[in-house]
Design a protein around this nucleic acid. Sequence first.
RNA 1: GCACCCGUAGCUCAGCUGGAUAGAGCACCGGACUUCGAAUCCGUAGGUCGCAGGUUCGAAUCCUGCCGGGUGCACCA
Length: 752
Amino acid sequence: MSIRSLDHDLNALKDAALEALGVDADTRAAITIAATPDDMEGDRGFPVFRLAKAMRKKPNEIAAEVAAELERHVSDAPIVARVIAVGPYVNVALDPSALAALAIEEALTLGARFGQAEEPTGVHVAIEYSAPNTNKPQHLGHVRNNLLGQSVSNLLGFAGDRVTRLNLINDRGVHICKSMLAYERFRGHDTPAEAGMKGDHFVGHFYVVFNTKLTQEFDAWKATADADAAFTAWSEDEASKRARAGALRKTFYDANQSAWFDGLDDGARAELDADADRQRAYGKWKRSDAAKAAYAAWEQDSASAAAREAALRVAFFSEYKDAYFNERSELGAATKAMLLKWEAGDPEVRALWSKMNEWVFEGFDATYSRMGVGFDGVYYESNTYALGRELVMLGLEEGIFERVEGGAVACDVSQFGMKGDPKILLRSDGTTVYMTQDLGTALERFDVFEMDQMFYVVGDEQQHHFKVLFGVLGLLRPDLAAPAASGDVRLKHLSYGMVELPDGKMKSREGRVVDADDLMDGMHELARAELLKRPISDALRAADSELSIDDAMERAGALIADATAPGDLDALVAEHWPLTREELDRRAETVGLAGLKYYILNFNPKTTVSFDPDRSLDPKGKTGVYTLYSYARLRSIGRKVFGGGWPVVDDRAGAIAALVSPLELALVERLVEWPGAVDAAARAETPNPGAIAAHVYEICDAFSRLYNDSDHVLGAMPDGPRKLGLSLLLRATAHAIEAAASILGLDLLEEL
RNA sequence: GCACCCGUAGCUCAGCUGGAUAGAGCACCGGACUUCGAAUCCGUAGGUCGCAGGUUCGAAUCCUGCCGGGUGCACCA
């Protein structure tokens, strides 16, 4: 028996008891055994409500009857100590020593692999993540993608799957040409080294420059007669009628909200003091006839003609920016000319492209390596972008796709039950689109790797793309539309939410992003300050015995914050830091990255993350730092209490049997739950490293409570079974943390 | 218009294959360093689980409708 099979075994006992009472299989299966709430008698239990109708008795009576029957089935299961009917529930109390032995022995045997699948699943899954563009450095959004992809890979591997990690780098296209063009025209330095910049930042800088210049060009054009003519044409064009109406309506209703509110009577206003209520009421009013009449009046009113004109201009120019780039812009024309030269293999353009891409790859390598993110295969779109074309032509011959007006090839998406326009797979000029290459690379991968499943870690804004992609792939290769041998789908979009800043979305075109390298630097500096605070605080307290800990820490923090002049920090380090500067930097890096990774992974992947740089770096509470801190304390006990290592325990069973206090048993229970937590996280609809982060916190929390309890101070404990039992429990706990850290990608430290 | 995601404590989030009293962290307030590390621990306080129906013995969880926020629906990627 293993702890992984504990719940399974208990369920089997429950089924046997229910079957003996004549309960049918469906009903038996519908009743699952689960952990009891705290403060409730027993450790696992199940409700019997759904038996009431068939048995024509009160649930409480049924529970007593089922408990009596279950009692007869547990004699072969020594782990079950007692069966108790609690109201309408049947609970079982588990034998604490048997449970502790199970968890501790398993952890000691497996070490950092504690919780790993007992057998490989035989499933081979390829996971694509990161997929960056080479025109700009990576930002917080990529950080979430990289960390999710990496930890999901770790998680599935831990749960027994064979995992192949893939990256597909978008190194071609208009956006790269923009950076190249800006480099040619507007550069101050020739190379990243000359500019003193990382390669990807150097290239990304030119992407921002390009967009700044383009905006300037566009703004200048807006004032020309040409622009007026375009605006006038748009204003009268039938096709843009809806856009105009929408812009006007939005302008009117946005401007009218406060007037509407002031127009209400006092009573109505008082009821709508909450912002949300007011929004709701206004939304309701917008659909009323009165609102429509007010809008119609505004639309006709000559006094508001200027406001209408302004609203329309804003709407037009915002909508027209892309068309301007394509049809009128000098910069746009030059960019497209460069793209054509690239496609034609122009040696000069290709040389520039190679040179700039090399700079970017160097920068990316540094970022990936610092983040601890890696791949088993890296692909470049410049090599794969044409892959899907033949496939599409084949589909055309087979009648799966069709030629549409103008000569483009499209797929009717209703073939796989989707609504909407046909999806273009080849442009009328025969060139491929994003979807085409995804089709090609997907099929090629299935041929090369022969994996069972392909997962794509991509933001939720691309959900539609992947639905269509999977649908089309299913038409081309019906086996991919069918479930894999494991019963799971063969293609899955691991969609995750965007990362936003407190003041809204990040805009890489404007350079308004949280840069990945800056973020890691920030975490490093913060961790370094925290590391330095301790020895400085100690020194302050040594000099002034009246000083409280809190005050000393605060003053130490202030000293570090004030050390901004060159050399200040070095002086502080030299004076107070007891170890080498290299060791300080190493620890700061490890602690800082652990904080970042834990913070990002602790969210459910599908939720949109609101990232407040100032507040997310907090090392207090449920954080990655807490995990490292707990681990360092555990290791410290091994060193200090047991003189360099954990003691050898001859009578393990006897030592474990001495673990009886509630705090000890609570920690045991967290360890018992660990393998199940891994399974649940890996087999969730979307594999969820956040569940691992949550559970390792539970483990650390249970350990910290025990650690802080005066009855559990190992250093003050006489030698004997209890002390040895605790040493085994703490070793097992350390292994559980090691296992979780390996999934989350956290590096652990022996000392902070 | 259609599709997807979100709405839970002041803030950031768990819980959502229905089950026992809805949980954490932060922030606030009050406590704990002479023993293994106070980046810790203990305690107090904080909730119409967006709203309204429905299914059920039982709903934060499932269904329907509505409200609010976000995203997508290119011969862009």
